[in-house]
C-alpha cells in the first residue's frame, strides 16, 4: 500500500472531525440492522469510503476504541483483506489492527 502523503497528514485534524461525525451518524442510523449491506450502503459510510487512504488510520483507531463493522470500508479502501476465512468478529478486528501496525498506520 502507498504511504500517506504529507498533505494528508496536514489535513488530518479536520479530517478526523469529519470522520467522527460521519461515523457517529452511521452508527446511530444502522446499529439496529443485522445486514452489513444496509450498513455499507448508508450515505455516511459511503462518504467515509470515498475519502480514501487518508481515513484508514482513523478507522483503525476507531476500530481499536470501539469494534464495529469497519471491515467493508477497510477492504474497499486498502484493497486488501487480512481476515482469515475462519476468523470470528474479534479475530477479524485483531487482524486489521495487526495489519495497521505492520503498515505503521497506528
Amino acid at each position: 500500500m502507498d504511504k500517506l502523503e504529507h498533505s494528508d497528514l496536514q489535513t488530518q485534524q479536520p479530517l478526523e472531525e469529519t470522520f467522527l461525525e460521519l461515523a457517529e451518524k452511521w452508527r446511530y442510523d444502522t446499529e439496529m440492522f443485522s445486514s452489513p449491506t444496509k450498513k455499507l450502503n448508508h450515505p455516511a459510510y459511503q462518504k467515509i469510503i470515498s475519502i480514501g487512504k487518508p481515513v484508514i488510520p482513523l478507522i483503525l483507531r476507531e476500530l481499536e476504541r470501539q469494534p464495529d463493522h469497519w471491515f467493508m470500508a477497510l477492504t474497499a479502501i486498502a484493497k486488501q483483506d487480512p481476515v482469515g476465512p475462519e476468523d470470528n468478529f474479534k479475530q477479524a478486528v485483531e487482524a486489521w489492527l495487526q495489519w495497521g501496525r505492520e503498515q505503521k498506520l497506528i
Binding site: 443485522s34 483483506d81 481476515v83 482469515g84 476465512p85 476468523d87 470470528n88 477479524a92
Partner: peptide, 23 residues
C-alpha cells in the same frame, strides 16, 4: 460480535449474512 441470524442459529462469536466479506 454476532447478529440476529447467528443468534437464531445458536452462534455468538461471528455475524452471519450472505455476503463474501469476512468475517
Amino acid at each position: 460480535d454476532y447478529n440476529c441470524v447467528a443468534w437464531a442459529a445458536g452462534v455468538c462469536d461471528r455475524p452471519w449474512w450472505p455476503i463474501s466479506q469476512r468475517p
